[in-house]
Structure formats: C-alpha cells, structure tokens
Amino acid sequence: MLAAARACILPAIRLYLLGLKVLLVQLFSSPFRLPAMPRQDGKVVIVTGGGSGIGYEVVRHMARLGAHVIIGGNDEQKGLAAIRRICEEYREARVEFINLDLASLQSVRRFVRRFEGRGLPLNVLVNNAGVMLVREGRTEDGFEQHFGVNYLGHFLLTWLLLDTLKDSGKCGQYSRVVHVSSSAHRIGEIRLNDLNSCRNYSAHAAYCCSKLAQAVFSSQLHQELQSGGHPLSSCAVDPGMVNTALYRHLWTPLRLAESAIARLLFRTPAEGAAAVLHAALSPALEGERGGGYWADGRREEAAPLTFDPELRLSLWETSLRLLGLQ
C-alpha cells in the first residue's frame, strides 16, 4: 500500500517541481521571437491538434506564408471554426480539416488513406496534439491514454506517411517531422515491460513516460533517415509552459492557481508556436542540422536516455510490434 502511494505521489512532486523551475526560467528570460521565414507556396503541411492552442498558431502562420495546411483533429467543430478565423484574416489561406483521433489506430489509418487519396506531397508533419494528466483509461486499442495518444498514435501516423515525406523532400529542401515535446521528458522513464503503466498507475508518470518515448522516437527516426540518405529530418521541440487547455487536468487547487499564474508567467500560444515554426521552417535547420532537441530557437541536450542506443532500438522494435508493422 505504501509503495503504491509513493509511486503515485513522487512523480507528481517531481513534475510540479520541474514546472516551477521552468516557470522561473521563463520569468527571467524573454520569449523566443520568430525571425522572418521564407514563403511556403506549394508546400503541404499537416498539423495534428491544429484547432486550438499552439497547433492553431502554427497553422495560422503556415497559412499566412502560403502553405496548404491540413488540420488533423478529433473535434470537427473546433477545426472548422479555426479555419473560418484564419480565412477571415488571410483570404488566400488554404486550410482544411480531416478527422483524426489519435486514440484510435483505425482513425489514424483512415486519415492517412484520405490524405494519400488526394495525391498531395507532404513537406512538413507537426506532431502537436496530446493529452496531459488524464484519468487512468485505455484507448480504443487498449493502450494507456498518454502512451497511446502522445506516442503510439503519432508513431503510426508518422510511419504511414514516411514514404510521402521522403518523396516530397529533395537536396536543399528536406521534408521535416517536428514533434512537439516537453521538458517533462527529462523526468520520464520507459519500462519496456510495462508501457501501459499497469503497475501503480500515476497520470504524472505516464505523461512523462509518453514524452520521453516521443523524444526517443524523434532521435531514432532522425538517425534512421540520415543513415538511409533520405531527404527528411526529424526533431523534437520544447515550446515551454504555454497557456493552453493542456493543463486543465491539474490537481484542482493548482488548476485554480494556474489560471491566474498562466496569465502572468506562461507563454502565449503564439509565443510557444514560434519555437515549433522555427524547427519546421528555418533554413538554418536544413538537412542533417534539422535533427536534435530544440527550445527557444536553440539546440539543447535532451535527457540522457534519449541517446541510449539499446533503449532507442528496443522501443522502436517494440512499437512496430505493438502496431502490427513488422
């Protein structure tokens, strides 16, 4: 009983202390300002969770630069409302919505079939959607929700779109996969024999695990692409603590405090999106330079586990097996 309580409480304490540290850093530093980016006419971009928050700001900026942007999300009403706002602001914007529920592998496959049926290229994939601190539960396919949505759903989406991404890239204009990460990956751990967090469940630990898995996947994917000589890069981006609905599942007293603190200390969605847009569009990140872990427009060292070759390969192979891709 004591061990179970400790397994639930300690990850929460660690995550909230990390959040406090991030807030203090943000308080004493200026948010990253996105420099002018080149036009994206003729480029096609997919942004998961692009109907609100950081994703919406990424879609909005991409559309302003002339890209054809597809929002992948599970809330059609929200997605269409986002499109209306963007088109009111930029009359020439090319933005559309395709239903995508990352908690359903069938939905992911259906999304990819619909996209591929259009015969479009794909120049940028932004894996932005996610859940945080949701109650214990399972996805449609039986996976723990954080692991299933934040990691496995995006793994499958990326895998199924890899050929299109590779075919759309070329020397000097690589295609890019951008994973919206979190500093929470630094306190995560991956138990390959318990990826569904069945033992002593903690939503805080499960979230951190899913973000670490995402960072590991990004690193391994980039290595695989570069060793294969493909014109496609993969990176992870930490946008910082941003005032979005992602934090709505915090412990109630903290949530009430957070709503006031967020307005003062959290970054705005547009400020958070700047780091994502830099990774997706900056000419300085062309080719092999586009890999790695980024925050505030700078390359940073990810958690040491991200570089563990045995863990990277084991998680990669386990994910392929879980998704029936081998």
Rank of each mutant, 00 (worst) to 15 (best):
R64F: 13
P35K: 10
L23E: 01
M37R: 13
P38F: 03
G55P: 07
L23W: 00
V59W: 04
R60P: 10
I54Y: 09
Y56R: 14
G19N: 13
L20M: 12
G50Q: 05
L23G: 09
L17R: 14
V59G: 07
L24K: 06
L20Y: 06
G53D: 04
A63T: 09
G51D: 04
H68D: 13
S52W: 01
R33V: 14
S30D: 11
A67N: 09
M37N: 06
G55D: 03
E57Y: 15
L17P: 08
L17F: 12
G66N: 10
D41R: 15
T48H: 09
S30Q: 14
F32Y: 15
V69R: 02
G66C: 09
D41I: 13
F32E: 04
F28Q: 01
V25K: 14
F28Y: 11
G53S: 08
R14L: 12
M37F: 06
L17K: 10
L18E: 03
A67K: 04
V45C: 12
V69M: 12
V44L: 05
E57A: 05
F32D: 03
A63G: 09
V25T: 12
L27R: 14
L65S: 09
S52V: 08
I54M: 09
Q40S: 13
G55E: 01
L15F: 11
I54H: 07
Q40W: 01
L27Y: 15
V47W: 01
V59T: 12
V58D: 05
M62N: 05
V44P: 05
V59L: 08
S29A: 10
L34A: 09
L15K: 00
S29F: 01
G19I: 08
V69D: 06
S29E: 08
F28P: 02
G55L: 02
G42V: 05
P38V: 01
L24W: 15
V45S: 00
L20R: 02
A67F: 06
V59H: 06
V69Y: 04
H68R: 15
A36K: 15
Q40G: 03
M37G: 06
F28N: 01
V45H: 01
I54W: 10
K21L: 12
Y56F: 15
E57I: 04
V45I: 14
Q26M: 07
Q26I: 02
S30M: 10
S52K: 14
G66A: 13
V59I: 12
V25M: 10
V59Y: 07
G50L: 03
S30F: 10
Y56E: 10
G50I: 02
F28L: 10
